[in-house]
Design a protein around this nucleic acid. Structure first.
Lengths: 126, 126
DNA sequence: ACAATAATAATAACAGTTATCGTTTCCTGT
DNA sequence: ACAGGAAACGATAACTGTTATTATTATTGT
């Protein structure tokens, strides 16, 4: 693995994700960071999102449609609105014990999980 | 919505999924069904997988990489091996109460969920 | 058997993402 | 401060998985 080297673009991507709670897509991130770095490339955004995900500094959320990214890595779950496709945070009381619970009925080694809820978000349900 | 009309190809796809517990991808399904229908098209496979999913007769599992399909629709969760990418079933004791649990801390309407566990499968952990 | 229409096979188009490659930026040692 | 090496960049091509298009075939109701 090559030595990590600072980049202003990566810094900016991470700052943006930390300021947001709506789990933007790579494209949304690209459009935003472009205001600070007008000729950043979409490839740079993807490369840094992968790198930051590997480093554990951000979290990638795979759903139907494009991947979404979260700068807040404390364990929590997500909710996807079937109508407007907004992705919201859900904080479970037992987030920490989910793996052990499943481990009881499973012969392999469980070291993580992701939970995605579906339904209608507050805005769409009125 | 147009009236549903029988097709032998769709029947075959569903039969295959019911016989399997390894959650094959569209491509795997295509390769298999081709033994019975040598000139079935990959598009036909995708179209029928979407249709069967909408009808609730099968279940689509979105992960990193290609979508995978499950002919067994009783509520249950899944485990993805980080090493060999095999996808296995996990049966939780409280599968039915997961939505209500999360509903306590969430202002929208939750009507479903999907849980994906990560780790090392029995085969890979030795 | 016939007409209506859903489903098909073949293939093009598409979305999201990853890879390539020549140039720029960052870092380290002098 | 400067130079050399390597990581990161921007531009763009390539790739993967999936959906859309269209002319033909299969299914269904009369």
């Amino acid at each position: 693995m090559p030595a990590l080297k600072y980049s202003r673009q990566r810094e900016s991507i991470k700052r943006f994700l930390l300021s947001r709670y709506d789990h933007p897509t790579a494209d949304t991130i690209y459009l935003h960071v472009r205001e600070e770095f007008p000729n950043i490339s979409l490839g740079t955004v993807y490369r840094n999102l992968s790198l930051l995900t590997e480093l554990g500094e951000i979290m990638k959320i795979t759903t139907d449609g494009p991947d979404r990214f979260d700068g807040h890595v404390e364990p929590h779950s997500h909710f996807l609105c079937r109508k407007c496709h907004s992705l919201l945070d859900v904080h479970l009381e037992n987030e920490g014990s989910i793996d052990q619970e499943a481990q009881k009925n499973f012969p392999g080694i469980i070291d993580g999980h992701s939970v995605l809820y579906y339904g209608t978000c507050p805005d769409c349900s009125r």
